[in-house]
Design a protein around this nucleic acid. Structure first.
Length: 327
DNA sequence: CCGATTTGACCCAA
DNA sequence: TTGGGTCAAATCGG
């Protein structure tokens, strides 16, 4: 976080280029639509896409190479978000008589971004697992409070999983979801709880196709967005594996939410955990192009428009983005 | 009555 | 000292 290393400069440059191209692409497409000029525009679009991919490729390479020193804020990753809920979280905490955890232990963590179709529509945030809200906090500089969830079975099954959810400032429809630790409870055993950063977990493919089905039931709406009525009825061990893990299994960027409302919702994994790489923090990985850009709305939102095209080349492109490959 | 949510207070890392 | 993360009592709802 101090000086900007060369790698990062390159990275930034590449990202800027991609951004610019995205804008151009957007413009071309808009023109196409108006003029019905499919031929010429199409070629230009292809060229742009190709170049963009190359840029992203280089950017990802930069990430990978710069990784060793990438833990930007402190060795263990984000300094603030260090998690204290580890196994046996019960004995942590104030007073901490046990005193066995002087330092907050950092669990593997990864984040995703979830876009909802409407402010009150938080169903895409349901990852199929049962979470219990244990806190909410206003975050300095953030418009919206951050909600804290932990696995419902934390005490009964010592499941360490927890997650933080927060609306992004720029886009109220976009949520930042940060997962800490992986589910070890029974509901996760089935299929769900695999950390999204475990790409080998290919069991998600089936879920993908069934996504609407498992969601059909009462959705978990663990957010305070909703009116006072609490307790989402469907929040228990659905065991329906529909979790964030599916995101990662298919790559980092998934458009058209695999979850509930594919039409409008959108989820994307922002980062891989550093469990694999042993040091890459989310902050570091957030440099992944489409991710960061998507999170940063405003003028950068042009990238958001591009999402639809990534899946076209998803195979190769996503490989680059697979957290395991560089995290 | 039981389990989930809310919310103020506390703990701890930076 | 500050602010993020967590605890736990109070409250709510089925």
């Amino acid at each position: 976080m101090e000086g900007v290393p060369e790698d990062k400069c390159t990275l930034i440059a590449e990202l800027v280029r991609v951004l610019e191209m995205a804008r151009q692409l957007e413009t071309y497409m808009a023109v196409q639509q108006q003029q019905g000029d499919a031929a010429g525009g199409d070629q230009r679009c292809r060229a742009l896409v190709s170049t963009m991919r190359a840029c992203i490729d280089r950017a990802v390479s930069c990430c990978a190479e710069g990784r060793p020193d990438s833990p930007p804020s402190g060795g263990d990753g984000s300094p603030r978000s260090g998690v204290s809920d580890q196994a046996g979280g019960e004995f942590r905490g104030r007073g901490n008589a046990a005193g066995q955890c002087k330092k907050r232990k950092t669990l593997p963590k990864w984040s995703s971004q979830v876009r909802v179709s409407a402010v009150q529509d938080v169903s895409p945030l349901d990852d199929g697992l049962s979470w219990r809200k244990y806190g909410q906090k206003d975050i300095l500089g953030a418009k919206y409070p951050r909600s804290y969830f932990r696995c419902t079975h934390r005490h009964t099954q010592s499941c360490q999983a927890s997650k933080h959810v927060q609306r992004t400032d720029g886009d109220p429809l976009l949520f930042d979801v940060v997962y800490h630790g992986s589910h070890t409870c029974a509901q996760a055993q089935g299929a769900a709880a695999r950390p999204v950063n475990q790409p080998a977990q290919q069991q998600t493919d089936t879920e993908q196709t069934t996504s609407p089905g498992f969601q059909a039931g009462p959705a978990v709406l663990p957010f305070s967005l909703r009116p006072a009525s609490n307790k989402p009825p469907g929040a228990h061990d659905a065991g329906d594996g529909a979790t964030s893990s599916r995101f990662i299994a298919t790559g980092c960027t998934v458009t058209a939410s695999p979850f509930v409302s594919p039409a409008t919702s959108e989820c994307r994994i922002v980062s891989g955990g550093y469990a694999l790489g042993g040091g890459v923090t989310m902050a570091g990985v957030r440099n992944v192009p489409d991710v960061e850009l998507a999170a940063t709305t405003n003028s950068l939102m042009a990238m958001g428009q591009m999402d639809f095209m990534f899946p076209l080349d998803a195979a190769s492109f996503l490989e680059l983005e697979s957290p395991a490959s560089y995290c």
